[in-house]
Design a protein around this nucleic acid. Structure first.
Lengths: 392, 392
DNA sequence: GGACTTTATTCGATATTCGAACGAAGTCCA
DNA sequence: TGGACTTCGTTCGAATATCGAATAAAGTCC
């Protein structure tokens, strides 16, 4: 029932179990890892010495000596995290416990191209870093979620539609150079999947997190780990053809894509043709919560389309949960429509124990994932990790 | 680039690398496993002593001493394998090298229920076992592919449609008891995926194998291993709703499923309404190769429907290859139609390096997978495996 | 014919993990 | 109140695995 499938007993695995709440004491770890008590004891001691784990008092007895509780300390550094959208950015700091600090959202034009977008982003992140330092926290890494395909090997953006100038842009290395910190860049939906998995579903092994905002994307957790597929484009459901989209041209160059009828951008455009002034998907959400009938209808319709596509995904992938994230996921009608579609269309075997919910970490899901991934990948320990296994 | 993701260096991993042709000498294994030469040497020696690996001469020099070639011996036992269809069964023996022996196909009525179907199957397998013994080979295990969902934990069949009486039938344990051998039962598409992966695509990590025969199913290889999903129903594409199927009732109780328009059974039914007498999907295939226009049209149409559903799967899962297996996959028009649909509908990023082919092991794919899986899971070594790591 | 490669083995040295014994702390019940 | 039993955690050899260096075998290349 554990989350990650690393070397059993590696430092990262122990931290994962404690962070997720799966294990709270040495005895828990022994049960969870299946290693000898002596081994676990030694491991934990090393991690405590390295400052990556702390003891804080004792838990309730279960008929014997009380366990000494373990926790991830808030020290041990934080990561700066940025969740980029095409027209806005959300920026904040993420600690090893999963706590967020100093989260702000501001408008930001990615479509203007990297040359115009990089400096403002660097500025915001640098300011954030300064404030975190002033607060006594050490910044160890930076995680960025980008709204388009990313080659995680090179840290380059790949052919994002509607965003001229970004193709093959070395976002990771540029940011790293300007900030003087290690940087991790990945697709925004992947970051959200990591964030939701860690924050709310760390016990689950197979999970699909759908981001429904201006665009549509999804991140896939398979066997407790992020699944990227052969070329890193796994999770794309945005450009699946749906009949309702008929011949509508899509930014990808094809026609009839899901995105052209079910994305925040598409709904906003549709509302504008009805004479209702909206800007982004946040506006759409506002209209829905205000009870604007046209907006509600369109959002519900979008939910049906997304649900139609997801029904194939659920039958094929058979996940334990489908999590809806992004601005539109906060609209109840959309969630309800997806639920309805899935329950109606999928095999009973695939839905009987399927959870379908909106993201519990809400708008911060992407930030959490980006920050967490950066800390884990780029700053696993305060000092050069002392564990032997970690070297492999 | 290796296939399985087991304990690096485990006995099974070494055998996998040699069996797949990825490594042919100790030096290859050193490079592939990243372990010290001395460790690999010791491992190999143990496997040779156990009879699971043999040396056979030397390979070509690459500028130095010639490597001593390693091979999986044909000794070391075989598995009996059965690939069950609703109205026929294919039975044969599979060796550790991947060779098949004594393969026969005969008609067999699964729909008559387990009480009527078990004995004939046991009889055939027992005869096969006798013949293999007589040929000097040792039967070590039995692998069975069943055309419906299987709980691989208990070895029970689960709620197969159109096959009354099979629900919760303990196929594995009944067979094991009657044959006196360890038995492995899994879904037929899963077995095919294992077989094709091993026989022809062992280098690939992410693979979808579609079985298009009387019914439609698919098996998924993710990260080099069979992916089963949360409840073991992963890979089901048969009951995805397609518009062309409109209101057609499906055996699953829902309407408009892919199966109702694209399966061998559906095509045969359609041909019969046209006054063309056909029985199973083998008949359909014969008509297509004979150039019967109606059959060809229907098969091509079925390919389009399957391709439509697969386009979602390919975008979402981003596999390295899609392999078409089952009787209908031998019909060129079907393969061509699937190819066309995928290239037209999927993202370029998902198809640019995607291989789409018919199964190279042809009708034996399911047998190979069943036999191989049984040998690997149930008879990993000739004697109680001597490797330390294997115990974990 | 000598220098360099590649392949494979032998043999301590070095870690890692385990298991058993033990100590610490608490519960449960007569 | 006082054993008997549980749970939790540590200490300390013993068993095992892996590595690395030294060595040997066999070939290529100039």
């Amino acid at each position: 029932m554990t989350a990650a499938e690393e070397q059993p007993g590696s430092a990262a695995h122990v931290l994962e179990l404690v962070a997720s709440g799966t294990a709270a004491s040495r005895a828990d770890l022994v049960r969870e890892l299946g290693l000898a008590a002596s081994t676990v004891s030694a491991r934990v001691q090393e991690l405590v010495d390295a400052g990556l784990l702390t003891e804080y008092g004792e838990g309730a007895s279960r008929g014997g000596r009380r366990p000494r509780l373990l926790r991830i300390p808030d020290s041990g550094g934080i990561a700066l995290a940025a969740d980029l959208g095409s027209h806005h950015a959300r920026v904040g700091a993420v600690g090893r416990t999963g706590a967020t600090f100093d989260v702000t959202e501001y408008s930001f034009d990615l479509t203007a191209g990297p040359d115009r977008a990089l400096e403002p982003l660097v500025g915001r992140l640098a300011e954030l870093a300064d404030r975190q330092c002033a607060a006594g926290r050490t910044v160890r890494a930076v995680g960025v979620g980008f709204p388009g395909p990313v080659d995680t090997g090179t840290g380059q953006v790949i052919a994002p539609s509607r965003m001229p100038g970004w193709h093959l842009y070395e976002l990771r290395d540029r940011l790293a150079k300007r900030l003087g910190l290690p940087v991790l860049v990945d697709n925004d939906a992947n970051m959200m999947a990591l964030g939701e998995h860690r924050a709310a579903h760390s016990g689950l092994r197979h999970l699909v997190v759908v981001k429904a905002g201006r665009g549509i994307g999804s991140g896939v957790i398979s066997d407790g780990r992020l699944y990227r597929g052969a070329r890193g484009s796994a999770g794309d459901i945005s450009h699946v053809r749906v009949d309702a989209a008929a011949e509508r041209p899509c930014s990808c160059g094809n026609i009839g894509c899901l995105e052209t009828v079910a994305s925040g951008a598409a709904i906003a455009a549709e509302l504008r043709t009805l004479g209702i002034g909206v800007d982004g998907s946040a506006d759409v959400l506002r209209l829905v919560t205000d009870g604007e009938p046209n907006a509600t209808t369109l959002v519900r319709q979008a939910g049906r389309h997304i649900g139609t596509v997801l029904s194939v995904v659920v039958n094929f992938f058979n996940p334990e949960a489908v999590v809806l994230a992004g601005a539109l996921a906060e609209a109840e009608p959309l969630v309800a429509a997806v639920r309805g579609m899935l329950y109606e269309r999928c095999l009973p075997m695939a839905t009987s124990e399927l959870t379908i919910t909106a993201a519990t970490s809400g708008a911060d899901a992407g930030l959490l994932g980006a920050g967490h991934a950066a800390l884990r990948e780029l700053a696993p320990g305060s000092r050069p990790v002392p564990m032997a296994r970690a070297a492999r």
